[in-house]
């Protein structure tokens, strides 16, 4: 092998990232010759945030943030793998509607399969989690972690798998929504939207707390102005927009969207929740006036990264 003085990236397919390509769409990975060792990183889609509630002169809550997806690192010697694998990447959940019902959609799981099929356990080589982030009617639920029993190749693999983080609860009445603090995983839930009391007292929307020098993702500001729209929650933060590397200055880290602000007046409009980044939950929408509350943010899509050596 030649001496690599300049650390120039080659194009030998040592690191490939696969993104969401459509519901039930399959992408193909070909095992490179001469590789000895393959690492898979799978994360599912985050759940969408719930919309805020409406009804001036009534107590209304901000929407809950969407949960983040479970994820898994799985490392396998290449001889144990087929020459071709089929990948399905989970989509981020839809935003929840104004009024709070329906809540945000659940994210999709990500799969690595031996044939394009996610129904037979014999065909699923690995997956990002056992349950997706968000379940029907409860968008704040975190994705649940896989165990060795979920993977046929577990006998011969090294597996590190983690559950996602639950989305933050939306503010109830004038009680502020609780900020979301990253919990040791690089994918956070979304933060809740702001609520409002029956007499127009506004609560605060929630933010994603900044850690390790990464910024705080602020929730939207409230409004007490008739017909005005409250501030939108900021979209989540990402240290990777894509994974063309391998030289990155910061570790891989993604956050959910922040909560939307609330509107106290009868014609006020609640702020939208921020969208989640990869695998993260959308923020909850802020409470609105009589007609329109903030919609939730969209959950971040999942991805699958495959590294070989």
């Amino acid at each position: 092998m030649g001496i690599d003085y300049n650390h120039i990236n080659d194009n030998s397919l040592k690191n490939q990232t696969f993104y969401f390509a459509g519901t039930n769409a399959w992408q193909i990975w070909i095992k490179p010759p001469n590789c000895k060792w393959v690492n898979f990183f799978l994360v599912g889609g985050g759940a969408g945030g719930q919309g805020g509630q409406t009804g001036a002169a009534s107590t209304r809550s901000g929407g809950n943030g969407g949960g983040s997806a479970a994820f898994a690192y799985i490392t396998v010697p290449s001889f144990a793998l087929p020459g071709q694998l089929y990948l399905q990447v989970g989509r981020g959940g839809f935003f929840g509607e104004s009024g709070g019902t329906p809540q945000g959609g659940s994210g999709g799981l990500s799969y690595v399969c031996t044939i394009p099929d996610t129904t037979s356990p014999y065909n699923i080589l690995m997956k990002s989690g056992t349950a997706a982030a968000g379940v029907l009617g409860v968008s704040a639920t975190a994705g649940t972690v896989i165990t060795a029993a979920d993977i046929l190749l577990a006998d011969i693999a090294f597996i590190s798998a983690y559950a996602g983080q639950a989305g933050g609860t939306g503010g109830s009445s004038s009680t502020p929504a609780t900020n979301v603090t990253p919990s040791g995983i690089p994918f956070t839930g979304g933060a809740g939207g702001a609520g409002c009391s029956s007499v127009g007292t506004l609560g605060a929307s929630a933010s994603i707390v900044g850690i390790l020098g990464f910024p705080t993702i602020s929730g939207g500001t409230n409004t007490a102005v008739q017909s005005a729209t409250a501030g939108f929650g900021n979209n989540g933060y990402a240290t990777r927009e894509n994974f063309v590397g391998p030289n990155f200055k910061t570790p891989m880290y993604f956050t959910g969207g922040a909560g939307g602000g609330a509107a106290s007046q009868t014609q006020g409009i609640g702020g939208k929740g921020g969208n989640g980044m990869f695998g993260c939950g959308g923020g909850g929408g802020g409470a609105g006036g009589n007609t329109t509350a903030g919609i939730g943010g969209i959950g971040g899509d999942g991805f699958i990264m495959i590294t070989v050596s």
Partner: peptide, 15 residues
């Protein structure tokens, strides 16, 4: 060395 074509190099992969 830049491995452009990912050709099997005939090296021993394992024992």
């Amino acid at each position: 060395m830049v491995d452009t074509f990912n050709i099997v190099d005939g090296s021993q992969q394992r024992q």
